[in-house]
Every structure is written in C-alpha cells, then in structure tokens.
Amino acid sequence: MSARACPDDTLVRARRGELLPEEAGTLEAHLTLCASCRMSAALGRAVGPLPPPDDEDEALARRLIEHQLDAGAPSATVPVVPFPARRRRSPGRSWAVAASLLLMASAASAAYWTVRVKTARRAAAARAAWTPPARPSRTATPPAGATTGPPPLPLAPPTVPARPGPSQSRPVHAPARATQTAAIDPETLLRNANEARQARRADEAARGYRALQARFPSSREAVLSHLSLGNLQLSQGAFSDALAQFQAYLRLRGDGAELAEEALLGEARALAALGRPAEERAVWQSLEARFPRSEYSWRARERLRELERGAGP
C-alpha cells in the first residue's frame, strides 16, 4: 500500500469498526508514510463517530413525515392527487430552496411591520377577522367532523359581523361593505398570514396571502405578500407559482425597491429549480450587476461559475 494509493475507504471502514486485524496493521504502516492519510485519520477522530439515529431524530422524522404528507393532502377527506401529478417532473435543479431566504424575508417583514403602531381599533378588528368561519357557509355552525384548532384565514373577503358576539351563532349574511373594510384591512391580513406561516400552517398562510392580493391588490401589504408567498411556495416546491410571485413583486415595485435583491434571489432559485438555466443566468447576472455589494452577490458569482461549468445540483 503506497502513499500514492491512499486507502481512503480503509480509513472509513476503520471508523465504522469494520476493519480486519491484518488490514489494521497495513493501515498503520501506511499512516507512517502518508501525511495526507494521517490528516484523514485525524479529521475522522476530530469529528467523532457517526451516531445511529436517536430518539430526537425519530421524533423529528415523524414531524417531517406528517408535514410532508399534509403538504400534499390538505384534508384527509379530500381525494389525494397522485404524487407525480402534483410535483414537477422535469429533472430540474431544485437544490437551491431558500431556508435562509424565508427566514430573512420573514425577519425583514416582521421588522418593517412591527414598528408601526397598532391602534386598539385595529387590534379589535384583527380579533374580529378571526372569529367568522372561513368557508363561504351561510351558517357559523362548524361542519360535522370539524377539528379544533386555529381558524383558517379567509379565502375571500369574508362575510363577518361588525363585532364578535352572539351573532356568531346565527346565520351570517353579507354585511355592508364599509363594515368589511373596517374588520379586514391589508395590515391585518398580512399579519395573520405571516403568523400562519410562522406557525407552519403553510396552506393557511398561502390562502391568506392570496386573499390579501385579491382584496387589496394595490396596497403595500399585498405587494410585499408576493415576496412572502413566493418564498413559501419555493420552500414547498411549487416553483412555477413561486416564480410568478417574485416576478409580480419586481413588476409592481421595480428593481430598485426594497427587498428587490430577495426577489431576484427567489426568481433565480425558482428558475434553477425549473431547469431554465439561460433565464437563471440572466437573473443572477442582473442581481450581481445591480447589487454588487449585496450579501447575495457572492452566491450569484458562485452559481454563475457552476452554470458555466454545467455542474452542480
């Protein structure tokens, strides 16, 4: 065993405890000659053995499974769309989903909105917004089999009473438009959707963002929600929908707007996942050119190099 034929796999098997005694002797001899393998052995010692999955791994795994299955099946009573039909089939590059992007967008959004003073009236309106049933049912009686838990966000401008109270127990009719506006405002809708997202109620959050965009399309909150919804959809693998959201944000706010870098980053990642490298390259180049001091310019350069090499997942 010469230094030119380093026994990398023998070192791995030694860490796994699979080495035969005679192999161990040969390895020891090689280590006296090969600095590279001594470094490998030292690195192996430094990181320690790979533990088998423990109870915490198992608990996390159970949550992951439920979340993953729930993501494709909003309700146990709803027929499940076959897996290939609800997932992108093309072998595009879907590696660049934005864990950190979601975090950053959330932080930026939260920082922006939390500085605004919330009046007591708006707080009351927010509570009222959560009290009515979300379904377009004419009664407030929960459907049979309904489960307890946080109420879903309204899918459309809801039919809500002016204030919570006994009226919830009687049929709810469409109130005057002025009442709706008082009860549901863009800020409330955005806050509710953000809270749903932070609580990992992704479907509810998505419905909230869409309701905001439909109800108040020109509001600042609705424009911002394109970024939030895009990030959410990106993390769920709905890349085409995410792409549309990021592009809508840029179209409505312009490339020089706040959070435009995040929108461009999201757009590039969605295009990467969709396997559209030419368009992806153009977006990365745009991001690097327009925001050379951005924290994402490093990422843009790295990805552009990967695209030039035609490598990377």
Partner: peptide, 12 residues
C-alpha cells in the same frame, strides 16, 4: 423539511 420535500421532488 426542505430536504425531505426536495427528496420527494427529485424522486422522479
């Protein structure tokens, strides 16, 4: 979670 979603996505 994202990794598991990506696994499902890339299964094909």
């Amino acid at each position: 979670q994202q990794a598991l979603a990506a696994f499902v996505d890339r299964l094909p």
